[in-house]
Design a protein around this nucleic acid. Sequence first.
DNA 1: CACGATCCGGCTA
DNA 2: TAGCCGTATCGTG
Length: 297
Amino acid sequence: MIELVRRLPFRPPLDPSNLYGHLAATAVPGVEEWADGAYRAVVPLPGGPSVVTVGLPEADAVPVRLVLGEAADEEEALRRVRRTFDLDADPLEVDAALAADPGLAPLVAAAPGRRVPGTVDPEAMVLRAVLGQQVSTAAARTHAARLVAALGAPLEAPDGGLTRVFPRAADLVAAPERVAEVVRMPASRLRTLLGVAAALADGVVDLAADPRVVRAALLALPGIGPWTADTVLMRALGDADAFLPGDLGVVAAARRLGLPDAPRALEVRSRAWSPYRAYAVQHLWATGEHAVNAVPA
DNA sequence: CACGATCCGGCTA
DNA sequence: TAGCCGTATCGTG
């Protein structure tokens, strides 16, 4: 067990509200938590499960504490934190691109440096995206927590609320009846969950591939539509241009702002925001009253 | 393209 | 506790 403390630099500005807010509000009990003003998560790495603790941003860096199984995992652990907190973004370029649209300019001005929350565990994010179809973020969190409790490998050294590793796709494939027992949702969505798990486990969906390839592979699976595929691109692959024109929150925000709110028309308008449409999603979501939009008190 | 089924969990009254 | 909504998807007409 190796403990390391690091500071990860970023290009200011960085708006922490939706970034930390989203990660905290959707934190899955057992594998993630918000504690003492920091986001904490279990990260499956080659040398074994690790724990990352990420505090609120300072002027130009984010404080990180790593507890690793092996020192060799440091680089990968830090890479995942950078991805999760979008620390490699160029906020001046992103903000300038979005603010060129008068419809988005006020949102950018109100929250410069807004980031796109990612994930420390891309494979888990794919499964969570399916669990999040059509249900509230709170309900999605409940479903994921049940999956973790039933199928997540226990940590040798539980740490606060962090007790398990999020189940691997192969774990679901190996125990489909157990998945059906604990995840109470429509039969079609259960089939989708198991189908996605199988596709991940056998390489039909390869998260290391080009985002366009991943998107096509996901859309080919029954029960995976544009929302789920593009959520995966945005959150798990870090595709800055992923867009969710049919998302309930995005549509509602567009309507409030006087933007086109029909998904098709909104997709057309969004082309002007390319290649930073994922940031537009964040700005649009942030116009609503939702738990994901604020760092917990 | 519009619309209903899915059939659950969270939240409100 | 009844009833509606929730950061969807698919099949039908």
